[in-house]
Amino acid sequence: MATIELLHIAGCPNSELTLVRLQRAVDNAMPSNTLITSTVVDSAETAAQVPFAGSPTILVDGVDLFPTDGRTTDLACRIYHTPNGPAGSPTQQQIEAALAAHG
């Protein structure tokens, strides 16, 4: 069973939408007992200890589901490239495809 974690900063305007999309994608693509945890990254020190690439970051078994060129310790928002242009959250379909590829 995969371990899925959503890393986000407090007050992130995109974390709730990402969590909803992630839960739907997991429901469609993963075993029913897959657990999603949500972790607030509250300091640069915390961000340095995890593979954080901005808020929100989705980890599957400790690996960024949408790998980028680098990690950050900045408590900042993340931009995803979606079919509709840049956005603060990947689409549910992008999450499902990434989960399937990770599989």
Results as ranks from 00 to 15, higher is better:
V26P: 11
V26R: 10
V26S: 11
D27W: 09
D27E: 15
N28D: 15
N28W: 07
N28G: 08
N28E: 15
N28K: 15
A29I: 04
M30I: 01
S32K: 13
N33Q: 10
N33F: 02
T34W: 07
T34C: 10
L35C: 03
L35F: 02
L35N: 10
L35G: 01
L35Y: 02
I36E: 07
I36V: 14
I36T: 10
T37W: 02
T37I: 07
S38T: 14
V40A: 05
V40L: 12
V40T: 14
V41W: 00
V41F: 00
D42Q: 03
D42M: 00
D42T: 00
S43K: 00
S43T: 04
S43C: 05
A44P: 05
A44R: 13
A44Q: 13
A44M: 11
E45V: 06
T46Q: 12
T46I: 02
T46Y: 01
A47I: 05
A47G: 07
A47V: 03
A47T: 06
A47C: 08
A47L: 05
A48V: 07
A48N: 13
A48T: 06
A48M: 05
A48I: 10
Q49Y: 01
Q49N: 13
Q49H: 09
Q49C: 06
V50H: 07
P51C: 11
P51K: 12
P51Y: 06
P51H: 11
F52T: 03
A53E: 15
A53R: 07
A53Y: 01
G54I: 10
G54F: 03
G54Q: 08
S55A: 11
P56N: 08
P56G: 11
T57C: 09
I58C: 11
L59C: 08
V60W: 05
V60C: 12
V60T: 14
V60G: 04
V60R: 14
D61N: 15
G62Y: 12
G62E: 11
G62K: 10
G62S: 12
V63H: 10
V63D: 12
D64W: 03
D64M: 11
D64C: 09
